[in-house]
Design a protein around this nucleic acid. Structure first.
Length: 305
DNA sequence: CATAGATCCTGTATGC
DNA sequence: TGCATACAGGATCTAT
C-alpha cells in the first residue's frame, strides 16, 4: 500500500490489534522481505521473539512497532520492527487457521489466543527490518532507517516555513519535489497530482519560481486532500490496498485528476490529460494547470557553481 | 552536491 | 487463444 492516508489506516489497525501483545514466533517465508535487515532472517526473528509490541507509529509511508524489553512491558526498549509497504505490501490480521495468502512473506504469531499478523507483498518492493530507535532531536524516537525521512505534513512537528524554503531552494519541477521524501514525507503519485490540481499548479513548474504564498497554499491542499482521504479509509482501486482487516477505502470516488484521463475536469470540464512521468504517469487539467513556458527547470549557469 | 534515470518484482489489462 | 507490451499508490542505487 502506498501513500500516507493508506499507511495511517494500517497503523491504526496495528495499534488496535497488536499493541501490548507478545510475539511468540516469527516465520520468514521469503528472504527478500527482510533484505533491509542486513544480519539476515534468522537474526531478524531472534530479535523479535519473546518481545512485546508497545504500539504502532508512522512517519510518512514508514511504519514501525516499538518493542518493549522482555518482562518489562511498560518500558520501551531501543528497537522496533520497521516496515515499508512499497507498492503492494499489506499487513493483515488473520486467524491462524486462515489459509496462507499467495504472497505471504512474513508471519508473526503471538503468545495469546488472538489472531496472527501477516506481511503479504506481491511485488516485494516492501520490507521489514529490526532497527534501533534514535532520538529525533525533538523528544521523540525514530528507527534508524527512517532518520533521513522528513516529517510529514500531518505531523504536529512539521515546520511549514522550513518546507517552503526548501521547496523554493530546489532546482526541479514541483511534482518531483513533492515526491521527495526528504523534503516532506507521505506524498506519493496520487496525492501529488490531486494537491497540484487543487492548487491549479502544473507539476512541471519549477519549484524555485513559486512564491512563498503559492507553496503555502499548495501545502494546505496537500493536507486537505490527505485528511479527506484518511476520513474515507484511503484510496483503493483494487484488493491490493486494504486495511488490516482486508477492507478497502473509497476515496477513489473523490479523485479529481489521478487516473481520470479523458474525463472532464470537475472544475472546468476540460478533459484530464495523462503524460508519462518518472516511469509512471501524471494527470492534470490542461486548462486549470497551465504548463510552464519553455521547458524543464534550468540548472544554474556553470560560472555560478 | 544535487538531480534524472534505471532498476528491483509480480500481476493485470489491452492490443495484435 | 496466444503472445507481446504497457502499466501499477515506491525507494534506492548509479551515472551525470
Amino acid at each position: 500500500m502506498p501513500e500516507l492516508p493508506e499507511v495511517e489506516v494500517v497503523r491504526r489497525g496495528l495499534d488496535t490489534w497488536v499493541r501490548s501483545r507478545t510475539i511468540r514466533d516469527v516465520e520468514v517465508l521469503h528472504s527478500r522481505a527482510v533484505r533491509r535487515h542486513e544480519a539476515g532472517s534468522t537474526d531478524f526473528s531472534a530479535r523479535i521473539v519473546g518481545r512485546t509490541v508497545a504500539g504502532a507509529s508512522r512517519r510518512g509511508k514508514y511504519l514501525w512497532l516499538p518493542l518493549t524489553e522482555p518482562g518489562k512491558a511498560d518500558h520501551v526498549a531501543g528497537s522496533a520492527i520497521v516496515g515499508h509497504l512499497g507498492m503492494s505490501g499489506q499487513l493483515l490480521i488473520e486467524p491462524e487457521e486462515a489459509p496462507d495468502e499467495r504472497h505471504l512473506r512474513v508471519r508473526f504469531r503471538f503468545d495469546d489466543a488472538g489472531p496472527e499478523l501477516r506481511f503479504v507483498d506481491q511485488r516485494t518492493f516492501g520490507g521489514l527490518a529490526v532497527a534501533d530507535l534514535l532520538d529525533d532531536g525533538a523528544g521523540g524516537l525514530v528507527p534508524s532507517p527512517v532518520a533521513h525521512i522528513a516529517r510529514d505534513p500531518l505531523d504536529p512537528g512539521f515546520e511549514d516555513a522550513v518546507f517552503v524554503s526548501r521547496v523554493r531552494a530546489k532546482d526541479s519541477g514541483i511534482k518531483r519535489v513533492l515526491l521527495d521524501q526528504t523534503v516532506a514525507s507521505g506524498v506519493g503519485n496520487i496525492y501529488a497530482d490531486e494537491a497540484l490540481w487543487r492548487a491549479r499548479i502544473h507539476g512541471e513548474r519549477p519549484s524555485s519560481r513559486l512564491t512563498s504564498p503559492q507553496v503555502n497554499e499548495l501545502l494546505a491542499h496537500v493536507r486537505d486532500v490527505m485528511e479527506a482521504a484518511l476520513a474515507q479509509g484511503g484510496t483503493s482501486f483494487d484488493a491490493l490496498y486494504v486495511n488490516v482487516n482486508g477492507q478497502s477505502g473509497y476515496f477513489d470516488r473523490s479523485l479529481a485528476a489521478y487516473g481520470q484521463e479523458g474525463l472532464p475536469c470537475p472544475r472546468c470540464g476540460t478533459p484530464i490529460r495523462r503524460v508519462a512521468f518518472m516511469n509512471r504517469s501524471s494527470y492534470f487539467c490542461p486548462q486549470c494547470q497551465r504548463p510552464p513556458r519553455g521547458r524543464a527547470p534550468q540548472g544554474r549557469p556553470a560560472a555560478e557553481r
